[in-house]
């Protein structure tokens, strides 16, 4: 699905991501884990066209290099950003419609309300007045409105209560079963390794480890550095 090779991202003199190669297979969840500042969000921004990047980024047969963000969304990439970034002054339904693709948008909204019943109950509520968990659900639903092939989730559990984190995990599993590929950037390594099949561990923008999530979860170094064991 997604092939990233030799990805490099710089902010002025700061090298945020250096020579990173990874891929996300079809219908699987791949996690990028690492502490704050490891470069996870920069990777997602680079893929989305929100940060200028070197290297190669391909989605299926489409080379995303040189495409603008809206063209990458049309190609099949969607991002639920860190901090949610919902349109605070707009209603839940308007937030969904603004991210919608194609002509069957009302049907897509109905589908999202089926997937996120809480949003359906709050259809007309102003997004900025909702709780953090509800805004997170809205950010994910809004990303799904573009009917993506690859969904990127940036810190979807940050600041959320454990019960909401469990809901996010359930949701990711549902989306995988629907055939969606997911790239998850997460500081919460325990959660990420639980939900993803494969994970890449980043440190100061470089790849430190990679492997099947189950193997990484058993690795003593990962347990000590990222799982607090």
């Amino acid at each position: 699905m997604l092939q990233v090779e030799r990805l490099g991202i710089r902010y002025g003199a700061v090298e945020a991501v250096d020579n990173l190669t990874f891929h996300v297979p079809d219908s699987t969840c791949v996690a990028l884990i690492g502490s704050n500042g490891a470069g996870k969000s920069s990777v997602l921004k680079g893929i989305m066209g929100l940060a200028s990047a070197t290297g190669s980024i391909r989605l299926g047969n489409t080379d995303l290099g040189g495409l603008k963000s809206h063209q990458r969304v049309s190609a099949g990439i969607a991002l639920s950003p860190e901090g949610r970034h919902v349109f605070a002054d707009m209603s839940v339904k308007e937030n969904l419609l603004v991210g919608a693709a194609g002509h069957d948008r009302e049907a897509l909204v109905t589908e999202m309300f089926g997937l996120f019943p809480r949003l359906g109950e709050r259809e007309k509520q102003i997004a900025g007045s909702m709780s953090g968990g509800e805004q997170q659900m809205l950010a994910i639903a809004r990303a799904l409105m573009s009917k993506p092939k690859l969904l990127m989730l940036d810190e979807p559990t940050m600041g959320l209560a454990p019960i909401i984190v469990d809901q996010v995990i359930v949701l990711i599993n549902v989306l995988k079963k629907r055939g969606l590929s997911i790239l998850l950037a997460e500081q919460n390594a325990e959660m990420a390794l639980e939900v993803a099949e494969h994970a890449y561990v980043l440190e100061t923008g470089r790849l430190k480890r990679e492997g099947a999530s189950a193997d990484l979860a058993r690795d003593p170094a990962i347990q000590e550095d990222y799982l607090g064991l």
Partner: peptide, 20 residues
Amino acid sequence: RQIRALASSAFAAQVVGINV
């Protein structure tokens, strides 16, 4: 809606695929 979304957040507008 796209104009209002862009006025609300240019970053989020790009994220949802608006041609800013």
